[in-house]
Write a protein that binds this DNA or RNA. Structure first.
Lengths: 206, 206, 206, 206
DNA sequence: AATGAATGAGTATTCATTCAT
DNA sequence: TATGAATGAATACTCATTCAT
């Protein structure tokens, strides 16, 4: 098993172990999305996965490692998607629109993963009670958004505004788009994304 | 117990009982803001209030009622403040700016209350696992914001956009402003509010 | 409850709480003596005491605090008894005999307590895996025994030997007397004590 | 599995199986000596041996059989050593001294084995909670020591004392010598042994 | 109105053991 | 022979809630 047989690093994980870990992560996402972080006990996750409680402990060092894995998996997937979409786009205005729209298209298939992500971000604390994610990770997002806005200002396409405020607002607006859509499945996500892209674009241009 | 003797409403509550409830609510806000929803046990809240655990159960039917009360109290207070600030303002653009700026000024003195509010919103579930707040309560906010935007559109000052998307974005942007300021206390809240007001205004005008 | 309501120190413990703690300590002694330290779970101790598992956690901060209390209670009692018996005795040879004989008489009524003490001494470890008792506490015993032997040497009654070796041997011999008697209840404890006193006395005199 | 295929005795065990069992026993001794009986899980022992957990179960019917093997192996080795040293010695007084001194020399190279032995003796219980070793095994030691003392009495070299008390004390004194040396590695083991031999000899002679 | 004592269900985690490969 | 995967029972501990006083 991983934490016993491979104490040195995250090197070679057997195929079957990878599959189990993925299965457990998927079950965790389902449970967290459905009942919330606080109610997402390992027992419930195990039941969802159709395995024994002990098996989770066998594959993950602890609950925190599982939660971290959920975050990493979900996060990496969305980042890959968005970065791929933005590849080759030059114009700051187009980058802005592409970011909003590609996040929205990705969301469509990842409702639960993103919902779980939000729960973990907002709730997971380390031993001394401080948020495990949130600040640091959000700051990464903020920085990448700021780059878009700064490029637009440098190109003279965007007016002079505080890029951090714009990044915080942009990020929150995208999150809210997702949250609203999750709660109102009949809501038109694509149209929302277009509206939001317009909104942000207008807020930026001179 | 109260909720059994007075099942009809929240009518006659003795002065001392009101005081105790307020004291407990205040302690709950402090604890939730400090250690997060999941770690906010009744024992911790009681200790913070300097009373016994049993007394909380005496004054509240259960943990959920206490959490609900925290939400209602905090929520009512901020709504009163914002509504008072918007009283007499006519222009939609001014209403918009006033809303953002008055929320910011209110936040300054209510860090903990708002932080606790966010925690409860994101975490409190009822018995069957569905979020206790969120949809319904947010919808009230959305509707009041929509009124502002619709008025602006009716007056010809605002362009034609989806008012629900704008309301969702506006609300999320204000929440994010608060959250960012809570985590970065050195951040200039007033300037953020002004920037956000500019941003939203520009996004709306024709 | 203690650890919540009296976080400052070990000051005022209510009468009823003292009684419960004593009851739990007694149950712990019974269980440890009967099934050994490793099998002495809180569940088993609670069952022995006829109370719920939770109540142990209510009265003791954790298992270690309970074990420590068992040690302190048992240890203090035997030390008081032996010291009282040795009070007023002057001659080193008599002190030596008195120590052995008074320990034996005390043992008679404290079989389980002493058995439990031995188990805890030999097994309780703190978080980093080092024995919680043992060395330090034994050293206290050794020192007090050494005082007796050194006095005998100073008075010229005892020959010149290593007092630490004698103390270690004395202590072990007394423990073994007890252990043997526990396992062979028909064994004549008083006669064993007399034989042991003779043995040690002869080993010391010139 | 072994104990099923060869239920009659410990007859034919393949060479490789013997080697594995020895390797596992050695690992168990290391782990028990280092972290204590209670923390000595099969997983930890397997890791120490560099093999999988399952392999221990393959070679031993259960944890208890492994522990028993540790005791038997260690015990047999020390008995062989001591008996060899006493071979040819005739005088009871010399036998007594030889026993103490040869045990001490053996200890020097067997710290861990003896430490583990003590842990298992003090902790291993069978299903119904009674000590697995202790009584029976100690009685063997007692009897062999009694033979020495009785021979001394028969030869008129030793005074008239209870040989069982003397044997119990002798055994305990030797164990304590070991335990003290294990905890105080700077302690002079050889000098302790000489002092102890003097002590016992003086306690016996007329 | 308030407390401290008590419960029992629930938490994460550990571990000896089993078993298919 | 040997492994890695899996189980299920047991562990200490937490906590909302109840209740006699």
């Amino acid at each position: 098993m991983r934490s016993e047989n491979e104490p040195t690093g995250q090197k070679s994980r057997s195929f079957i172990e990878d599959a189990r870990r993925a299965q457990i992560v998927a079950a965790a996402i389902d449970v967290i999305a459905d009942v919330g972080f606080a109610q997402a006990s390992l027992a419930r996750i195990a039941r969802q996965a159709g395995i024994s409680k002990g098996l989770i402990s066998y594959h993950f060092a602890g609950k925190e490692e599982l939660m971290t894995e959920v975050v990493v998996v979900t996060y990496t997937a969305i980042a890959d998607h968005v970065l791929a979409a933005m590849q080759g786009v030059e114009s700051p205005r187009e980058l802005l629109r592409t970011h909003v729209l590609s996040v929205a298209t990705y969301m469509r298939g990842q409702r639960k993963g993103l919902k779980a992500l939000g729960q973990i971000f907002g709730n997971l604390r380390d031993a001394d009670g401080r948020p495990r994610f949130g600040i640091r990770t959000n700051d990464e997002i903020y920085r990448s958004l700021e780059n878009i806005y700064r490029a637009g200002q440098a190109a003279g396409e965007f007016r002079d505004f505080d890029v951090r405020v714009m990044a915080v607002t942009h990020s929150a607006a995208v999150d809210a788009m997702f949250a609203y859509w999750v709660e109102h499945p009949e809501h038109d996500l694509d149209e929302h994304a277009r509206q939001l892209a317009d909104l942000l674009e207008r807020a930026c241009v001179t």
